[in-house]
Nucleic acid binder design. Structure first.
Lengths: 145, 145
DNA sequence: GCCGTTTAGATAACGATTATTAATTAATAA
DNA sequence: TTATTAATTAATAATCGTTATCTAAACGGC
C-alpha cells in the first residue's frame, strides 16, 4: 500500500540530507494516507492532537521541503488556501464548486495543445495546468430539484 | 476598434443601473485599451496621474462591478495578484514563468475532456480552466546560452 | 432644489503565507 | 556515550493582496 511510498519518500529525503523529525514524518505520512488534497491548515488541525504545540509554520516549512524534493505538488486557487497532493503520477483534477472537493481523473496529457500554443505564440512551452469544475455527486443529490 | 466595445460596455452598464463615473470610465477604458491582462495595482498605478486621489479600493470595487456584469474575467494565480482580462471571447492563455506576461491563443474548447471527466467521476461538469506555462520570446532571447 | 441611493476615498481588517529569531534536536564524529 | 554542528522547531511579527467599514460627496428622479 502507501507504506511503500512513505518509506521510499523517507529514504529519498534522507538521501538529500533532510532529517526525519517526528513532525515531519507525521506530515508526510498524513499526506500519503489521504486522497483529500488537504490544505496546510487541515494538515495542521489533523495533527494537533498528536503534536499539541506544533506550529503552523512547521507545516508550511515541511510542505516546501517536500515540494522541493519533488514529493508533493501544490495546487493553488486564487486567494483561497493552497492544497497539497502527494500523488505525483500524471493526472488531472475535477473540483466541486460547491464543497471544494477534489477528485482525480486520468486523461492523456495535452501535449498537442502545448505544441499548438508554442507554434502560435513563440513561447518555449514547459508545462500546463488544466482542471475541471462542476458539482460532485454528493452536492448534486443535496440540491433542491 | 475597441471604441465600439467600450461604448457597448458603457451602455450595458447603464442598462443595469450602474452609473458612469470618471474613475469607472477610466478603469473600463484602460481595460479595453490593453492586451496586457493587468493587475488591480497596475491599473491603479496607470491611472494615478489622471486621478491623483483615487483609492485602490475603487479599482477593486469597479473590477467587481465589471466582473458581475460579465465584461471582465479575473485570472487568479496562487498567492500572486489576480489579473483582469476584458476579452470575453473563448480563448486560452500562455504565461511566461520568467516575467509573468500573458499571451492569448486560440484553440477549440476542450469539451471532450470535460465529457470524459464527467463520465469517470460522476461530477456534473460546468467549466474548466486551462493555461500553458513557458518562456516568452523576450525571456528566451535574454537567456545566457 | 430635495431625497434616497450609489459611489469614492480613507483606512482598518482579514487571511494565507513567509520571515525572523531563539531554543531545541537529529545526525555524525570523537 | 558524549560533544559538535547544522538543521529544525515554535512563537510571533511581518507581508501582501484583497475586502469591509464608514463617512462624505455625487448623481438621478421627482
Amino acid at each position: 500500500m502507501s507504506n511503500n511510498r512513505l518509506a521510499e519518500a523517507v529514504e529519498l529525503l534522507k538521501g538529500i540530507g533532510v532529517r526525519m523529525t517526528p513532525q515531519r514524518y507525521a506530515i508526510l505520512s498524513f499526506l500519503y494516507s489521504t486522497m483529500n488534497h488537504p490544505t496546510a491548515d487541515e494538515i495542521y488541525k489533523s495533527l494537533e492532537g498528536n503534536f499539541p504545540n506544533m506550529s503552523v509554520a512547521t507545516v508550511y516549512n515541511n510542505l516546501r521541503v517536500f515540494k522541493e524534493a519533488g514529493l508533493v505538488r501544490e495546487l493553488t486557487y486564487g486567494d483561497a488556501s493552497s492544497r497539497f497532493d502527494a500523488n505525483m503520477m500524471d493526472h488531472y483534477h475535477v473540483i466541486c464548486r460547491e464543497c471544494g472537493k477534489i477528485t482525480d481523473f486520468d486523461h492523456p496529457p495535452l501535449f498537442q495543445m502545448e505544441e499548438r500554443a508554442a507554434q502560435s505564440t513563440g513561447y518555449q512551452v514547459e508545462s500546463h495546468r488544466m482542471e475541471i469544475y462542476g458539482l460532485c455527486p454528493d452536492c448534486q443529490s443535496h440540491r433542491t430539484q
